[in-house]
Simulated assay, not measured.
Amino acid sequence: MKVEFESELWIWDARRDETWTFVSLPVEASEEIRDLTAGQRRGFGSLRVRATVGRSSWTTSVFPDSGRKTYVLPVKRAIRAAESLTAGDLTTVTVELLDL
C-alpha cells in the first residue's frame, strides 16, 4: 500500500526542541492501514515504511497516535535539512508500507 498526502510538520509536545518532528497521515489512510495490518504491529504499534519527502527517501516506521487517531511519521533532522523544512511547513509525503 502506498499513500501520498500533504501534511504540516509538527513537534511532539513532550520534546519542544525539534528533536521529534512528525507529519500525520490522513485519518482515512490510517484507518485503511489499521485494517490491512491487523496483528502485524511491532513495538509501540509501529509499522515499517519507505517514506519520501521531496527528493529524499528513507526507511523508517510509522506509529499510531491515539490522540490524533492517525499514524504519525517521524521526519528526521537530516531529511528536514536536505529539504529545507521546519515545523509548521506543509509538505508532500509518500509512505509505502513494507512487510505486507
Score class of each variant (00 low, 15 high):
residue 76 K to W: 00
residue 88 G to V: 11
residue 11 I to H: 05
residue 71 Y to H: 11
residue 94 T to F: 08
residue 80 R to W: 04
residue 26 P to M: 14
residue 29 A to T: 11
residue 46 S to H: 05
residue 58 W to S: 09
residue 9 L to G: 10
residue 43 G to V: 05
residue 7 S to N: 10
residue 50 R to F: 09
residue 94 T to S: 15
residue 87 A to W: 07
residue 35 D to V: 08
residue 50 R to Q: 13
residue 6 E to A: 13
residue 93 V to P: 01
residue 28 E to Q: 10
residue 80 R to F: 07
residue 96 E to C: 11
residue 40 Q to D: 00
residue 74 P to W: 00
residue 98 L to F: 15
residue 61 S to H: 07
residue 88 G to M: 14
residue 2 K to E: 15
residue 59 T to C: 01
residue 1 M to L: 08
residue 18 E to G: 15
residue 37 T to H: 06
residue 30 S to I: 02
residue 78 A to L: 12
residue 58 W to H: 09
residue 47 L to V: 05
residue 17 D to M: 08
residue 1 M to K: 02
residue 91 T to P: 03
residue 52 T to N: 06
residue 76 K to E: 01
residue 35 D to E: 12
residue 87 A to R: 13
residue 58 W to P: 02
residue 7 S to E: 13
residue 58 W to A: 08
residue 18 E to R: 15
residue 53 V to E: 00
residue 9 L to Q: 04
residue 35 D to S: 11
residue 100 L to R: 07
residue 63 F to M: 10
residue 99 D to S: 06
residue 24 S to F: 03
residue 88 G to R: 15
residue 73 L to Q: 01
residue 65 D to E: 13
residue 70 T to H: 05
residue 60 T to R: 02
residue 2 K to I: 15
residue 11 I to C: 10
residue 97 L to T: 02
residue 27 V to I: 13
residue 3 V to R: 05
residue 83 E to D: 07
residue 89 D to I: 06
residue 6 E to Q: 14
residue 70 T to P: 01
residue 49 V to I: 13
residue 84 S to K: 12
residue 1 M to T: 07
residue 46 S to K: 02
residue 48 R to N: 07
residue 100 L to D: 02
residue 44 F to A: 10
residue 83 E to V: 00
residue 90 L to E: 15
residue 61 S to K: 02
residue 66 S to V: 14
residue 43 G to L: 10
residue 47 L to A: 01
residue 96 E to G: 12
residue 56 S to V: 10
residue 40 Q to V: 00
residue 36 L to G: 02
residue 34 R to F: 07
residue 53 V to C: 03
residue 85 L to A: 07
residue 62 V to H: 02
residue 80 R to E: 09
residue 71 Y to R: 08
residue 95 V to L: 07
residue 42 R to W: 03
residue 31 E to M: 06
residue 71 Y to G: 05
residue 10 W to F: 15
residue 14 A to F: 12
residue 95 V to C: 08
residue 100 L to Y: 03
residue 72 V to R: 14
residue 79 I to F: 03
residue 49 V to Y: 04
residue 17 D to G: 02
residue 55 R to G: 09
residue 72 V to L: 13
residue 90 L to P: 04
residue 100 L to F: 06
